[in-house]
Design a protein around this nucleic acid. Structure first.
Lengths: 189, 189
DNA sequence: ACCTGAACACCGTTCAAGT
DNA sequence: ACCTGAACACCGTTCAAGT
């Protein structure tokens, strides 16, 4: 909102979200956001109980957007389950390259008190993956195990990327590996 | 060291390491460690340039211990490569349950400026895994790809555990999955 | 050579006082 | 109803002064 005017809680979340996008939840600082908004941090406490409340609002917004993207992906027509899985993994691999706020989320979730939200998103991802794998004719329990294992591998690759461990495994190999885990099923029951 | 006496840099690292063990690198706070040692934080700056130097010393110590454990494992006689791999993965799965300082390391490494050390440890883990897989008669490039993929999956499961996402996949299943990835080779090249 | 104590910066939080 | 400004706590950092 314009300097000098009055602000809503939403304006605070907008400004905080920009900082989150750039630097993760750790960059969501009351004083800094107040500066961005051209107001004082004292005014922040009119709208929110404390910093954790703001961090939580930002994460909830991230969850909503993540869900939208999920639905958009699922709704998009075209293709066998295999093709959809391939599309999904290749999008994930591509986003892996960008070190944005989301990339930091799993790392920061616990310290910032939003582990529950990240857990919820994880469950959605697993459910969606399991659904696609199930569409290949795989039994439901096995489909879930494969979904968890391939999600875990993708998250692990993200972590290795965080410490800049390249491991000579590129985007294409990551995509192929995740797809192979999902479709050819290496997961023991 | 006893209160009132004089302290060495090592004493500071000892005390800081205890805090790391309990709460990760984030718990390594100059003021708190000074309190533990019964001295003032001002005195800290005689021994160290700043907090990052202390954090780095703690991580270097962690690396040394991690290496020791690695060597101990590798040297331990007995068993085919398969048996050693199984032992390795089951130990990792077991440690996954404990939420200690190490569990937080990958998350915090970048923010704390010790990504290089964690990267080095990752490379050792991959090299060791690749060596065992290579002993199964697998070609060297393929062995490395399998090593990276199985390490990534284990790290990813750790992350999911951090947000307490259980996913109905237990320790035994994790072990079996990692082993299957390493030995039966789902990784596309 | 090693430490204390006071000072400052930065950020989260509270609150009396203003509009 | 919403905000300012000052205050305090906590922690990292510096430094003059002490032993």
């Amino acid at each position: 909102m314009a300097r000098g005017g009055t602000r809503s809680a939403d304006d605070w979340v907008d400004a905080a979200y920009e900082r989150f996008d750039a630097g993760g939840l750790g960059a969501v600082k009351v004083e800094a956001v107040a500066r961005d908004l051209g107001t004082t941090k004292g005014s922040f406490y009119w709208h929110f109980a404390d910093r954790p409340a703001l961090v939580r609002a930002v994460t909830v917004r991230w969850e909503a957007r993540e869900t939208d993207r999920f639905i958009a992906r699922a709704e998009r027509p075209g293709g066998s389950p295999q093709e959809r899985l391939a599309r999904l993994f290749s999008e994930v691999a591509e986003r892996n390259r960008v070190r944005d706020g989301e990339a930091a989320l799993y790392r920061e979730a616990e310290a910032e008190g939003v582990a529950d939200i990240v857990r919820r998103v994880s469950e959605r991802r697993v459910a969606y993956l399991a659904e696609l794998i199930g569409a290949l004719g795989i039994e439901v329990g096995e489909a879930r195990r494969r979904a968890v294992a391939s999600l875990a591998m993708v998250l692990g690759m993200q972590q290795l990327a965080h410490v800049r461990y390249e491991a000579h495994v590129d985007e294409a190999a990551l995509t192929a590996t995740a797809l192979a885990m999902a479709t050819s099923g290496v997961v023991a029951s």
